[in-house]
């Protein structure tokens, strides 16, 4: 569904990504892991067109999206959930959701979202930033789903959240995987990654250093030591 072919990305003069390639197949869950500053978020931002890649290509559903603008990429069916969660403080819970509702046809409706996240229904008139961190993350995931995406891109969905919320998010992600959602995930939680992902890429200093299955990385202590510091 998504092929990233040897992209090189720069922040101004500094070269951040070096020939990064990865592939996400329809219905699969792919995780991108690595230390802070390895280039994980930049890879996701390059895919979304927020920090366009200077060289290489990004092919989605058979067409290059490298030079397209973020809103066009979003409309092709990629939902991106940034590390900062991206909840708009001036908008209430319902307004945050309505921003994307009905833009693309699909199985997710406001009613179904409120069924999956009853808490959001209770707090639907609340301002976006008056929610707790966990509630904000639930809202961010709910909003991504309401875009009825074909590919869901998540940047550290469990970062800074209480263990009980992390469990809830993990359960939701498992449900989505079972339902056949294609997911590209950046995540520091090694346990979550290895129980969820079909394929794992390890990024270090802007390059892909390793790729393989969850079983393989669990067994490979050298990779864990060198690139993850587990």
């Amino acid at each position: 569904m998504l092929q990233v072919n040897a992209i090189n990305t720069y922040y101004g003069p500094s070269h951040v990504l070096f020939d990064v390639s990865l592939e996400v197949e329809a219905g699969g869950v792919v995780a991108l892991i690595g230390r802070n500053g390895a280039g994980k978020t930049t890879t996701l931002k390059s895919i979304m067109g927020l920090v366009p890649a200077a060289r290489g290509d990004i092919v989605y559903k058979g067409a290059s999206i490298r030079d397209r603008r973020p809103h066009e990429i979003a409309r092709t069916g990629i939902a991106y959930l940034p590390e900062t969660r991206g909840i708009f403080p001036s908008l209430s819970v319902t307004e945050n959701l309505n921003l994307v509702a009905g833009r693309r046809p699909g199985p997710w409706t406001l009613e179904r979202i409120f069924e999956m996240f009853p808490l959001l229904k209770e707090r639907r008139a609340t301002g976006g930033t008056l929610l707790s961190g966990g509630e904000q993350q639930m809202l961010a995931i709910a909003r991504s789903l309401l875009m009825n995406p074909d590919l869901l891109i998540l940047d550290e969905p469990t970062e800074g959240l209480a263990p009980i919320i992390v469990h809830e998010i993990r359960d939701r992600l498992r449900e989505l995987k079972t339902a056949g959602m294609t997911i590209l995930l950046v995540e520091q939680n090694f346990h979550l990654v290895t129980t969820l992902a079909d394929r794992i890429y390890v990024l270090g200093k802007g390059q892909i250093r390793w790729s393989g299955s969850a079983e393989e990385i669990r067994a490979d202590e050298a990779v864990q030591r060198e690139w993850l510091g587990v």
């Binding site: 927020l50 973020p70 809103h71 979003a74 409309r75 940034p82 708009f88 403080p89 994307v100 875009m147």
Partner: peptide, 11 residues
Amino acid sequence: DDGETASCMGI
């Protein structure tokens, strides 16, 4: 609020 995230919503 946040133009970058808004564009990722398809706006």
